[in-house]
Structure formats: C-alpha cells, structure tokens
Write a protein that binds this DNA or RNA. Structure first.
Length: 223
DNA sequence: GGCCAGGACACCA
DNA sequence: TGGTGTCATGGC
C-alpha cells in the first residue's frame, strides 16, 4: 500500500477511534441536506440550524414553497445564517433547477450518473465545488470526497500536501488514495469537521487532539 | 468589541 | 492564474 494511502487511513482510524461514528451529515432529508450545504457556506453551523428551523416552522422546507415565497419572507427566515440576501438567491437557484429538471425530486436527481451530475450542479449559480460535493455525497450518495478548510489545514499541517493546494487537486488526492466507498467518504469528512471544530479552531495548541501524536516534529501548529 | 466561521463570485492586474 | 473585496449573522 502506498505511503500516503496508509497515512490517510491512519488519520482516519485515529479520529474514528476517538469519536466513533459521526453519522454525518445532519439533516432529515436529502433536500434539507442540500439546503444546509448552501446555507453553511462560510458560516458556523449553529447559525445555519436557526435558519433551517425557521424554514421548517414556516413549511418552507421544499423546493416549490421556497420558489413561491417572496423575498422579504425568505430574507427573514434565512437571516440567522448570515449573507441572507445572497443565500436567498442561491437557495432559489438550486430549487429552480431541481423543479425544472427533476420535478422537485432529489431522488430523481440522484439517479443521474456522477460524471454528468457534478458539472450540472457546478453550473448552478451559487453552487461551488464544496457545496456541490456536499450535495453529491450526502444527499445523492455519490462517491465524492468533500474538501473543506479543515481538510486542507489538517493535511498541510501533517505535511501530506502543500498548504495552497487547489480544491480539485486535494479532492483527487483523497479519491486516489482511499477506497472508493461512500460510507468511508461520509465518515471521513464528518470526522475531519469534528476534529477541526474541537482542536483546530482558535486554539494555540492541539492538546487532546487524536492526531497530535502523528504531527510531524517541528511542524507549526497554527497556520 | 473584535475575530471568525464547513464558500462563491466578481473584479483587477 | 492569482490576489483581493464583498456578502452578514451570532458565538466566544
């Protein structure tokens, strides 16, 4: 087995034995997962939860209801998640596509092959690489590895990749080195998020981090 | 009271 | 192609 592949699986095992199953992503339905993926762009999940609760309370957690709601209502509902004007546009553009192309059905969308669906999602305004891959992996069960800020930080700290590696290169790195399994990709990303939140955010050291024992000697902790 | 969060996009050199 | 500004709320 290649060295990088072994290292990635070692990192996974350490996080998994520390936390157990994460059952990531939080969300009751594929549609809710997709909306959460858009709302969490550059935003703390605690703020996203409030907006999602607002959507449910207002019976707006379905694509047609969102398309029919007026801007003022969506602004109020999405306000807690920040960037509420731009997120109103982005949530709508996703719903517009879902309704026009798949009759509003996430299940129907998920039947499309990955190599056709990914470029299609990336073509929707407001859906970038990470958001598209969140939707593909967690809402559509496609074997895509999700890269985020925590992933880049973690791997560059461990000396596995350059800190400025691009999104697609880092995604390809994971997908090349790991077995192509949806369950593994889901859990790996969930564990990265949990580890990142617990140990990599606003903390001067990594005390208690399940990955601390394998940090390269002399590797700077904060970036 | 300041800093920052699981990004995406427009604009500019 | 790479760097920078913008979008906004809420927790720490």
């Amino acid at each position: 087995m290649a060295r990088a592949s072994k290292r990635l699986l070692d990192i996974y095992e350490r996080m998994a034995s520390h936390y157990g199953p994460t059952h990531w992503w939080p969300g009751d339905t594929p549609f809710e997962i997709a909306i959460g993926a858009i709302l969490t762009q550059n935003t703390a999940w605690t703020n996203v939860e409030k907006a999602i609760a607002n959507l449910k309370r207002g019976n707006l957690m379905n694509p047609r209801a969102i398309l029919e709601a007026d801007d003022a209502l969506l602004h109020e509902v999405l306000r807690p998640s920040g960037y509420f004007r731009i997120k109103t546009l982005r949530v709508r553009s996703f719903c517009r596509h879902l309704v026009d192309r798949y009759g509003g059905s996430m299940a129907r969308m998920a039947k499309r092959p990955l190599d056709e669906l990914r470029p299609e999602l990336l073509d929707i305004p407001g859906i970038g690489p990470e958001t598209a891959d969140d939707i593909l992996l967690y809402a559509c069960e496609k074997p895509v590895f999700v890269v985020d800020a925590y992933t880049r930080r973690m791997l560059s700290r461990h000396g596995l990749v350059e800190p400025k590696i691009g999104y697609e290169d880092l995604r390809a790195f994971f997908e090349r080195q790991l077995p192509n399994e949806v369950h593994l990709f889901k859990e790996y990303h969930g564990l990265v998020v949990w580890t990142g939140k617990d140990f990599c955010r606003r903390k001067p050291n990594c005390a208690g981090c399940p990955l601390a024992p394998i940090l390269k000697r002399g590797q700077p902790r904060p970036d």
